[in-house]
Amino acid sequence: MKSFRIILIGSSAGGLQAIMQILPELSKEYPIPIILVQHRAKEPKDLLEEVLQHKTKLKVKQADEKEKILPGHIYVAPPDYHLLIEQNETFSLSSDEPVQYSRPSIDVLFESAASVYGASLLAIILTGANQDGTQGLKAIKSKNGYTISQNPKEATFQLMPESAIASNTIDKVLNLNEIKQFLINLSNHV
């Protein structure tokens, strides 16, 4: 069993339901920080963090710039900003152009995290109707990170996982309940 220091999740259309199936059983002491980029509208009134918090014992919070990344948290990329990770394992934000029509973009987070965490990075790509994430997964593979895609057959929107799988960047294709179990098993091996 590999040991990971960071878990990244990228999801788009249909993502919230998928995430809510993966996360509920993770314990409060889950040892690996989780960072989520869910494509979202820029209106500040969406309740993504609140909705997720109801489903998990981990602390859900929007990532703040310069914030130190700690276990026990699910960090969510804020609306209308890209989320990046610095070498000292703190967050950075940018309002550079949208990537794949998205800000936050999964590619931006994945690419910046790849060079920080190398082989101790786990990235998961879920349902979505565009190709964000694929470039980021390439960067992660080039640094020997580990990658999982939701099984497109089960995904609400196939394009995002299909695009990732087609680019030969995915180590494992799993259904949501298998991803859930994979994450639970990780906490027994840290």
């Binding site: 890209h82 990046l84 550079d96 910046s112």
Partner: peptide, 9 residues
């Protein structure tokens, strides 16, 4: 400058 975004640019 914050390195991650500068590097990206």
């Amino acid at each position: 400058y914050a390195r991650a975004s500068l590097k990206r640019r």
